[in-house]
């Protein structure tokens, strides 16, 4: 079993297809939707974590392609250099996925890598330069 993260870009006429349902039923994949921006008759964007066997993931990706949907694998990830962080919270102002949040008890920064969409907004928003992108 492995997990990959990818973003899907739907052309306007594909938004009504139950793609994630097909991925679950046909390829036995676990889908975790991280971000969805889909409007009827307009282009849509979906960011997913997909977990399954190597073979099922490969088949699932081919199926996505066959449906005329473009996808992009996330090869990069965000690294939080916690030791240098002062926990000011400036990065939480721009994080669209909720991956970066303040702990409401001790007001330290928390980073949930699973939720991160690698949009890189935090990299620039951090005044101490402690968020960086790695491959």
């Amino acid at each position: 079993m492995k997990t990959i993260k990818l973003s899907l870009h739907f052309p306007a006429n594909h938004v009504t297809k139950p793609l994630t349902y097909d991925l679950v039923k046909k390829f036995d994949l676990q889908i975790n939707i991280l971000h969805a921006d889909i409007q009827l008759n307009k282009t849509g964007k979906l960011i997913l974590d997909i977990t399954g066997t190597e073979w099922n993931i490969e088949s699932g990706l081919k199926y996505i392609e066959d449906q005329g949907i473009k996808y992009k694998l996330f090869t990069k990830s965000i690294i939080w250099q916690e030791d240098s962080c002062v926990h000011c919270g400036a990065c939480t102002a721009v994080c669209p996925s909720g991956a970066l949040q303040m702990d409401k008890m001790d007001w330290s920064l928390t980073f949930d890598k699973e939720k991160c969409m690698v949009c890189e907004l935090c990299v620039k928003a951090c005044p101490l330069n402690v968020m960086c992108v790695t491959i």
């Binding site: 926990h87 007001w107 330290s108």
Partner: peptide
Amino acid sequence: APLSSLKK
């Protein structure tokens, strides 16, 4: 979102 660190 805060900009000053309450933790510090």
